[in-house]
């Protein structure tokens, strides 16, 4: 067993709040969206009929947009660091991707390179979520507010982009949920985002060795 004792504050209160808001919105948006894309009346009825469900969908969309926007404005430093981390890919990240971080059973992973605050997989997820959300926003709002003025082709285009982005996002988020909450190797991180923000220093030194080294140096 390792010697490192103590805890690491991985996610601040504001970050966690934003994550919660986004999570709840995402579930509502996904549910209502699936409901009216596939004509599942039982889902629509959950929100009080199809017209109400779409009302819920658009207004949840507003919160879904404003939440991260306000967060970024008030936490620019955290945001900038986050962006820096997820857009920096070194050979350690590619090494992680080659072995898939040891998460995939049939890929042998004897040595996994040290990782930043977020491993390469999480970086890709972060980028996917940011690009995906931007696409959802730029197609979603016109379908709601400009549906009268837009030509049919644009309504159609928005619809298609909105749908396929949603498919990709939902799949990505399902994977994210599995690794962060269910997978025995990584589920200890669940609490850091969903509850108090802390992770074991011991765990961090393994999973995010490069970041932990920085934190230690700063001590």
């Amino acid at each position: 067993m390792s010697e490192i004792k103590g805890k690491v504050l991985k996610h601040s209160e504001q970050t966690r709040t934003m994550h919660w808001i986004h999570l709840i919105c995402f579930i509502i948006l996904g549910l209502t969206g699936i409901g009216f894309y596939f004509d599942i009346t039982s889902i629509d009825n959950l929100f009080g009929g199809s017209a109400n469900a779409s009302n819920v969908h658009v207004w949840t969309g507003v919160v879904f947009t404003l939440g991260p926007l306000i967060y970024v404005l008030f936490n620019f430093e955290k945001f900038a660091k986050f962006i820096d981390t997820i857009t920096t890919f070194t050979k350690d990240d590619f090494g992680w991707l080659k072995t898939m971080g040891g998460y995939v059973p049939f890929i042998k992973a004897e040595h996994i390179p040290p990782q930043d605050k977020y491993n390469a997989g999480q970086k890709i997820l972060g980028l996917l979520v940011i690009i995906g959300c931007i696409l959802m926003i730029v197609t979603g709002f016109p379908m709601w507010l400009l549906r009268d003025t837009m030509p049919a082709i644009l309504v159609w285009l928005c619809w298609k982009v909105h749908f396929w982005t949603a498919v990709i996002l939902i799949l990505a988020i399902l994977g994210h949920f599995f690794l962060a909450a269910i997978h025995p190797k990584s589920r200890v991180e669940f609490a850091s985002m969903m509850i108090d923000g802390y992770v074991d220093a011991e765990y961090t030194s393994h999973h995010n060795a490069k970041w932990f080294a920085q934190l230690k140096k700063a001590e």
């Binding site: 009216f36 199809s50 017209a51 779409s54 009302n55 969908h57 549906r147």
Partner: peptide, 26 residues
């Protein structure tokens, strides 16, 4: 038809307001 995606674009095109249904409704 049933293929209606409830996008509500048609109500703005209809000159007589004959198309019924709000955004999200068939």
């Amino acid at each position: 038809t049933d293929r209606c995606k409830s996008c509500d674009h048609c109500t703005s095109v209809c000159p007589t307001g004959a198309i019924k249904g709000r955004l999200g409704e068939k």
